[in-house]
Computed example of a mutant assay.
Amino acid sequence: MSSTGRSTGILNVVAVGDELVAGLGDARGQGWVGRVAARTLSEGHNLRMFGLGVPSEGTAALSSRWYGEASRRYATSADNRLIIGLGCADLGEGLSLARSRLNLANLLDEALSKEVSTFVVGPTPTVHDEANRRIQELSAGFADVASRRGVNYVDTFTPLLNHEQWRTDVGASDIGLPAQAGYGLLAWLVLNRGWYSWLGLPSPA
């Protein structure tokens, strides 16, 4: 299923990733995926957005499942695209940075071979300094993999690391997840870091 069919003008965008893609912890149940979709739809664009999050999913599992699930939402008459929401589950699984990079590279290469345009959103910081040192390295590795393939990468780690509202949201959660304000920040980063140009849509005034 390629992304080349565009006769209907429909944008089919599937987002795969972990609990942040699923929007866990958001009292509105939207997460950043829902907020980005709502903003884009409010501007009159013909978008179908599907959030397919699996809590604590690492890059190996993500690479294995993405196409089987995404292809069910794709259509030959639509412009089919993929968002990859990356977390830091690989660190808990004990994967090396090289393995994490390879898993993402394989996923992006597979998407490219199927002519599915991709957009990558990197892992977010925690309120723990030691964990953040490892997440920073992971994010930089992911960014390099995406850059080598000309794929848009949204660095969420750097702008949120010392952001007071983000740290307040995550620090108040028993399981380290953002709430409404945090998800709003993530949505803003996505919308302002190449979202419209990736979709081939005009940026709002």
Rank of each mutant, 00 (worst) to 15 (best):
L189N: 07
L138H: 10
N192C: 02
N152K: 12
S147K: 09
F119T: 03
W195K: 09
I135Q: 08
Q180P: 00
H128D: 15
A131F: 11
V120T: 09
L191G: 04
A140W: 11
V154G: 06
K114I: 03
P178E: 09
E130Q: 15
S197V: 11
A146M: 01
F157L: 13
F157R: 02
N192I: 03
L161P: 00
K114R: 15
W198H: 15
A181T: 13
L177D: 00
S197G: 02
S147D: 12
S173R: 12
G171N: 11
L161H: 10
P159W: 06
R193D: 10
L186V: 12
G194P: 11
L138V: 10
N132G: 06
E115R: 09
R148D: 10
H163Y: 13
R134C: 01
L189C: 11
D174I: 03
W195H: 04
N162C: 12
A179C: 04
G122K: 05
Q136S: 15
R133D: 12
F119D: 06
A179Q: 14
S117T: 09
A140E: 15
Q165V: 14
L161S: 08
G141D: 00
Q136P: 01
D144A: 14
G150N: 09
L189P: 11
L108W: 10
G150S: 12
V145M: 01
L138E: 05
I135R: 11
F119Q: 04
